[in-house]
Structures are given as C-alpha cells and as structure tokens.
Design a protein around this nucleic acid. Sequence first.
DNA 1: ATCCGACAACTCCATTCGCG
DNA 2: CGCGAATGGAGTTGTCGGAT
Length: 300
Amino acid sequence: MCPLMRRQWQAGGAIGCPRKGWVLEAVDILTRSLSKAVPINGQMLQYHGRSDRHGQLICWGILFDLMLTSDLLRWHVESGKVVFGINHTLRSFSPEKKKRLDLVLCRPKAGAPVPRRPQTLHTLVDKHGIELTPRQWGLLQDLPVITEGPVGSVLVALEAKACMTEHIKALPRLYDELNSSHQIVHGHSSQALSIGFFMVNAAEEFHSPTNTAKPGPNKHRQPHALRRAVAQVTDLPRRSHHSSQGFDGLGIVVVDMVNDGVSPCTLVTAPPAPAEDDVLHYDSMVQRMAHEYDTRFSMI
DNA sequence: ATCCGACAACTCCATTCGCG
DNA sequence: CGCGAATGGAGTTGTCGGAT
C-alpha cells in the first residue's frame, strides 16, 4: 500500500484519534519532540531561544507532511529532481538583500559539489531528537529518500518563527523578519513558493534559559499577549495571484509550554488559534502548499 | 485641565548559536 | 575561531484612563 493510502486508511480507521479529521503529522511531532528535554549548551532543556532546534523540528515536520500530501513531490524526489537545503542563504535580485532560510526545496545545482555527508529526512530524526510514533516511522520508511543537496533554483522556501515568551516586546521584530522573508524569496524568484510558519505560546508562564537576571519564570498576561501575537502574524500580506506580494502559505500553531523541563508541550486549539477551516490553520497551509506545488511545478 | 501611574509599543544590544 | 543571524531582556518613549 502506498504511504498516502495507508495514512488515509489509518487516520480514518484510528480509534480514539485525538482530533477529528486529523491526517497531518507535523504538529503532533513538534509538540511531542518539544516535550522531551535534550542537551543544549550543557543543560537538559526543552526549548532554548538561541538554538535553532525548534525551527528545524517545524521544518522537518512540514517537509514530511508535504511529501505525504503531494504525489508530484514524491515523484520528483524519487527521480532526483528535487533536494533540500538547510539554513540556505538566499540572495534576492530585488530588493538586493540576503537572508538565511530555515529550509528550501530546490532543484539540485548542476555541477556543484554535493555536501560531504548529506543529511536526509531520516538522518535528521536523530540529529534533532525528533520523536516519532511507530506509525510515523512506518510512513517515513515508505517515503522516497529526500537528501540535502547543492541548492539550485528554489521551488519552496520555508521560514519558521517562534514566540514563546515576552510576546509584546517581540512583535515589531517578528513582523519585520517574517515580512522580509517573502520579499526576499520572491525577489529571488517569483515562481518560488514562500511559506511562513508561526508557533506561539499560550502558557501563563515560561522558564526562559536566557533570562538569568530575575529568578523564577517569566509571567505572561494571557490571553492578551497571545491574541496580539496572532493578530500581528495574521496581518502579514498573503499572495493571491502571481504578481502580488506576500506569503503563498502561512500557518499559525498555538502551543502551551512552560519549559520547566518536565511539563509536556501541548497543542492549543481554542481561539485565537486558527479554527480547522481557517486558511491559517496548519492543515490548510499544507493542503495549499501541496496544491500550489502540484500546479506550478508539474513541468520541471 | 492637568497630573500620575500603569502598561503598551518600540529600540537597542548582549548573548548564544550554527556555519564556513 | 570568527562571523552573521536570531532571540529576548533592558531600557526608553508613547498612550490612555482615572483621580483630583
């Protein structure tokens, strides 16, 4: 049975499925992986703001879901037409800027040297401490192996941002960085899909490993801080037809995470988290990404 | 009308990370 | 090991609403 069929069969047939209509995996993988403390900077931590583990977890999950959703992408990977790049610096023609993207899907650059030990979706599981259920492992095994390669023309660019504490202070910068992301991607290639992803914390308090000045966890004024952060990201421009500016896909996920090293990170589905039929819901984002991919890159 | 306090909004930059 | 990118904490400025 092909992975997609098996997944649909399992999702439909799963007894006690946590969410109605739940077929995508990344959010589940993200929350379970963030629930487990890993060694960062000599300490066992769930989340460290200066580490890029959370960004990598998100990108891994989105790539996994996109592979499961798009037949065309799986075929492109199988035939060696598409590879991925991590932390790839993208130079845009106009505006003339550069920016490091968390993850890009791209054509392999002809003649360029392949990374010495290229990562694959499989090797990254160990590298980032990604927690997979046996079922998710099975799905991964059934997928064609996508490898890291020299970045040629970019097809999909992904930017993941997290805001776990000090929401209000982070707002201006958050908006600017996300906003520059799609500008640079489309400045590089108007064909490319620019995808933004935002994870925000709904917890009342948060243990910040970087706040050494005052003892105890940071306190948040919730749900105010959460609402403001979601509103800020919702305001980002989205592209509706080829010419206009903005993200081609944008997803918001709300989590509850205290980061005390013990309490699990859990998904929040109540407002202001996007509802299941909202365009900013993670599932809609992936469906949209897959659809755009299939229509735009059928001829590569 | 004016003062004041609380908090929101914003700027700046120290620290830390990964990469080359 | 140096460098650029990213996060979020400290500090500054702006705004609003209530008391006098």
